[in-house]
Design a protein around this nucleic acid. Structure first.
Lengths: 256, 256
DNA sequence: AGATATTTGTTCGTATGTATT
DNA sequence: TAATACATACGAACAAATATC
């Protein structure tokens, strides 16, 4: 039993960098560090973990990418505990979904369930400033677009409408998921094709739903909020799938 | 108009490392690299971006943490395109929620909506092997636990039951979210306290729901699957909130 | 406003570890 | 076993950013 250098199991060789990452994470937990608190500076970390500058820096880079710290140069600088932005979290999650196939149907399966609920939840917190924001957004797309670029801006603003609504909910999880679904619709290649086509759709219908929704939000009528959003989502899904089918058909006929 | 060195706006100073990260990301997109494909090796990247070894390595570390590449040493080694595991994606997302407050109520608001739907979606794909897996999991907690450790294992297995069910759905997004919610319930400190207390709850009730669910899955009875899961989730939420309240009460009385 | 001190960011050369042949 | 090809780790020197005086 003298071979205690490498364990009998020894499944994975842990790299020095990752050791340091884990060690730092543990001290963050142990010392209960919160955003704004400072980590020891590079040279101290080098000493504490008796590692080289590069290794420590790679470890810090790892923590930075994970959204746990950010660094500042200059006197009083160093690594500070950070709390990840929603935007960064969504980017990282996008990397996971990047290699996987996501359909419009999948997204709307979720939106149909969640948007009505998040809207009701938002109703309890939204104020007149929030209501005004919604009107301002609608103003972006309450008229025919002059060109392709404005058409695009209008499609994005239509999604922003829901982003603002959701942001008033205090269910962090629910808000994050709704925002992420909205972002997916902005980013997905399939959707981009759809948005750019001059749609044969009655654009006013969507706006009508949104006016109704605002009214229901103002009156704190939960049933109405829920019902309007459900109808709105069903309609939006229908439009998207319809347009997608049209595009596919056109694509196939060009193939021949 | 000769000052084209720094833009008029020049909002953020982009670090060399991040430049390289972005450049590599772009080549991944442009060359349409897929998991398994190799990136140029370190020394080539050093040459291409005329950066130092450390800087390139920090860039690669960033990409690794983002789940986009993994590296291998030895001949034929280097950086390979990777596709992030679900587990890694959930870890990264946990970092986002780490600093935010998540309640059991928030989680169950989502589970009540999503678990019934994911179960119906899974119903279409689950096979007899899957059904067997579910029975095997129930066997872990269909009896009184002998000790604290077994009690804990049983609580985890109860969540695994739903993880397996969800895994048969082909809606990647929906699956991910359900799995994430299940993982949150495993990790949340509040929940850990709850699971460890010898529960005054009728444990058999949950198992009964699960047997009913399996039966409905086998018979491809969508309405039943949906209904049973809804009832199950409502019951689970009720139990959790009840136990949480009990714990809080006990905590408060100890304060005095 | 400018000089200075402090701290991270980048470079380079070298040495070590690891997997393939 | 040895040679090879690659990542991993080290450390000293220098550059850039920034707070303070």
């Amino acid at each position: 039993m003298s071979t205690d250098k490498s364990s009998v199991i020894d499944p994975v060789r842990i790299k020095r960098t990752d050791e340091i990452v884990n060690a730092i994470k543990e001290t963050i937990m142990a010392d209960n560090l919160t955003p704004g608190d400072r980590l020891p500076q590079e040279k101290d970390l080098i000493e504490r973990y008796s590692a080289s500058k590069s290794t420590v820096r790679e470890a810090l880079k790892s923590l930075e990418v994970q959204g746990l710290i950010r660094t500042k140069t200059g006197p009083g600088g160093g690594a500070f505990i950070d709390s990840m932005t929603e935007s960064r979290a969504m980017s990282l999650l996008s990397n996971y979904l990047f290699t996987r196939e996501i359909s419009i149907k999948d997204i709307y399966t979720l939106r149909k369930l969640l948007e009505p609920v998040v809207a009701v939840s938002a109703m309890e917190n939204i104020d007149s400033a929030g209501i005004q924001k919604l009107y301002d957004i609608i103003a972006i797309y309450d008229h025919e677009p002059a060109d392709e670029d404005e058409r695009w801006q209008q499609r994005m603003a239509e999604l922003d409408f829901h982003t603002v609504v959701a942001s008033y909910s205090d269910n962090v999880l629910l808000v994050f998921i709704c925002h992420f679904l909205q972002r997916l619709l902005k980013d997905l290649a399939v959707c981009k094709d759809i948005y750019l086509k001059p749609e044969p759709v009655d654009r006013c219908q969507g706006i009508e739903y949104q006016y109704q929704l605002i009214e229901a939000l103002r009156r704190k009528n939960a049933q109405k909020v829920q019902a309007v959003m459900e109808a709105h989502m069903n309609y939006a899904e229908h439009v998207m799938l319809e347009l997608q089918a049209t595009l596919q058909e056109r694509f196939l006929s060009e193939e021949r």
